[in-house]
Structure formats: structure tokens, C-alpha cells
């Protein structure tokens, strides 16, 4: 069938991301040896990928819809601190903490979404504001309530098993969550009408609204998803490591955006795919961790990531161009 032709594969948004991922894996196989594809090696980058990946998907969807959310950088520690303070410090039942973590994500997501929809302020600036506001609030409240910036939490076995354990001693259970989020997202984004709405939103907001798409609702929902994904990851990290830190999370802003862009999402919106974002996340994690398997100094990984990001942006343009100009050969 034509669906399997090279042209059809290459015009998919994840084509570049897939090739990039192969290139990077090959690079570290050559310079780092096979260790990095053995179980312990795989765990090292898969764990990193899962933590980033759960957030990268909703953030990537926002980018496809033409928006950006950098407040995730403080939503991660917010999630950690909420569960640690409520269930660690106050010893409340875990389900209350989980509701509070997701509820807080929903509130901040709604605020981000409403501000972006109601004002003409770009989402980068709006979420820069909430990034700092939430960071300040989390720090202030933690010190006020617990007197420190690092709070211990000992989750019951059941909750640890679901949200924060090492399967077989090496694989974070978060990997399974990432797979689940990916599968559900692929379904909703590429196989239902809702996905179509997201792409239309990123293509042209005005036309999308005129076509009857509830643009405000879609935008706010996406912001809620990204805020909740970040607070969820933060919560799982606290449960896994039995403690929460106020300051963990800012590096995620860059890591997530790099993963999304390397995954083939076009910065101006309207083009991208969930599978591409997953490939981009793996690529990022492999570079980030693969360096330990080589003889190179760790600092070089930033260089590789930087070059990779630039290459990805250029490649995205090329692939988008190919996708635009692709026409099936006449028989």
C-alpha cells in the first residue's frame, strides 16, 4: 500500500525525530559501547526520559496549539511539596494529597489558560509570571509551615508501588505511567476530533473559532493538562525519593522544550505528533545519560544537546517543507 512508501513516511512530523534518535543511539553505541543498551544502561536513560516525557507530551500539545507553558518548572516542586507537606508533615491520607496535587495543577492551569485567552499577553510571559509566583509561594509556604525547604515523606507501600518505586531495583514505575500517557495521547491527538481541534488552533485561532471549535475551552484544558502533568511528576518524585525539595524543577523547562522541539513540533504551532515527542524525549535522555558511558567529560553533553537542538529546528523546517510539497507520484 501507498501508506508504506518512503514519501509517506518522510512527510510525517516524527520522521526527523526518529532519524535523530537512531543517529544518537548509534553515536553512543560507537563511543560508549553496548553497556548503554543493557538493562542497567537502558534504565539510566529511560528513567530520565519518563520524568521528562510525561510533561513533554502536554507541553508539546500546547506548542502544537501555538502556546507555551514554562510554569511547569515550579509546578514540579509544587507537586513534591504538596504531597510531602500534607502526607509527610501533617500525615494526612495519601488520597487527599493526590487530589490536592492535581487540584493545584488544575487551578494554575486554569489561571494560565484564562490569562492567555482573555489578554493578548503571549503565553511565554504569562507562564513566566506563574512560574515565579508559584515558586515563591511554594518556598514561602514550605518555610512557613515546616521551617525548612526540604520535607521528608514516607508513603504507604501501596502508593509507593503505584507512584514511586524502582521496578526490579532499577526501573522507575513512572516509565509505565509515561507509556500510558503516550498511548492515551496518541489516541486522542491523532485518532479523535479533539486532536484535529488542537492542530487547527495552532494553524489559525480565528478560523478555528469560526469553524465552531471551542477554542477557549481547548486552550484552558491544555494548560490544565500541562500543569497537572508537572505536579504529578513532582509528586511521584517525592514519593520515590521519600523527600521533597523546593528547588528541583527549573532545568525541566529547558529539557522539556528541547525534547518537544527535537521531537519535530514546529515552534509556530500547527505541526507535530505525540510519537515524535516521545522520540525527542528519548533522544534527549540518551544524550543526557549516554555521555556517562563514554570516555568524554560530562560537560560535552550540553554541547551535543545544543547542536542537536539547532539541527532539529533546521531539520523540522526541511521536513515540514517536504511534507508541504509532497505529492504522490502519478502512476
Amino acid at each position: 500500500m501507498t501508506n508504506l512508501s518512503i514519501g509517506n513516511l518522510l512527510r510525517r512530523p516524527e520522521a526527523g525525530a526518529f532519524l535523530g534518535m537512531l543517529a544518537v543511539i548509534l553515536f553512543f553505541l560507537v563511543f560508549g559501547g553496548v553497556n548503554f543498551l543493557k538493562p542497567a544502561g537502558i534504565a539510566s536513560w529511560l528513567n530520565v526520559a519518563a520524568n521528562i516525557g510525561i510533561i513533554a507530551i502536554p507541553v508539546g500539545l500546547l506548542m502544537i496549539a501555538g502556546e507555551l507553558d514554562i510554569s511547569i518548572g515550579s509546578m514540579i516542586p509544587a507537586g513534591s511539596m504538596i504531597v510531602a507537606i500534607l502526607s509527610g508533615h501533617y500525615e494526612l491520607p495519601m488520597w487527599i494529597s493526590i487530589l490536592a496535587v492535581l487540584g493545584f495543577g488544575a487551578i494554575i492551569g486554569t489561571i494560565n489558560g484564562l490569562l492567555v485567552v482573555r489578554t493578548a499577553v503571549p503565553s511565554l510571559i504569562v507562564t513566566l509570571g506563574t512560574l515565579f509566583a508559584v515558586a515563591g509561594m511554594v518556598l514561602g509556604l514550605s518555610v512557613l509551615i515546616t521551617g525548612t525547604t526540604s520535607v521528608a515523606i514516607k508513603a504507604p507501600a501501596l502508593y509507593k508501588a503505584i507512584f514511586g518505586q524502582f521496578i526490579g531495583g532499577t526501573y522507575q514505575v513512572l516509565i509505565l505511567w509515561w507509556v500510558a500517557v503516550s498511548v492515551v495521547s496518541v489516541f486522542y491527538v491523532h485518532y479523535t476530533k479533539y486532536g484535529n481541534w488542537i492542530f487547527a488552533l495552532g494553524g489559525d485561532r480565528e478560523s478555528a473559532r469560526n469553524a465552531g471549535i471551542p477554542t477557549t475551552r481547548v486552550t484552558i484544558t491544555l494548560f490544565i493538562l500541562s500543569a497537572c502533568s508537572a505536579s504529578f511528576v513532582g509528586m511521584c518524585q517525592a514519593i520515590l525519593f521519600n523527600s521533597a525539595q523546593v528547588s528541583a524543577g527549573m532545568s525541566y523547562i529547558f529539557n522539556v522544550i528541547i525534547s518537544v522541539v527535537v521531537g519535530g513540533v514546529v515552534l509556530t504551532g500547527g505541526f507535530g505528533s505525540v510519537v515524535g515527542i516521545v522520540f525527542g524525549t528519548i533522544t534527549f535522555a540518551v544524550v543526557n545519560q549516554g555521555i556517562y558511558f563514554t570516555g568524554f567529560d560530562r560537560n560535552w553533553s550540553s554541547l551535543i544537546i545544543g547542536v542537536m537542538l539547532l539541527a532539529a529546528v533546521l531539520m523540522n523546517n526541511t521536513f515540514r517543507h517536504m511534507a508541504l510539497n509532497y505529492a504522490p507520484k502519478k502512476k
Binding site: N196, W197, F199, A200, E206, S207, A208, G270, R320, L324
Partner: peptide, 14 residues
């Protein structure tokens, strides 16, 4: 107005 969407998808947007 949706240059990056497929013909089928943009035809039925909304």
C-alpha cells in the same frame, strides 16, 4: 487557513 493540516482534516475542521 490551515496550511499544515491535511485536506481531509481541514475540510472537516469543527
Amino acid at each position: 487557513t490551515f496550511p499544515l493540516m491535511s485536506i481531509g482534516r481541514s475540510f472537516f475542521v469543527g
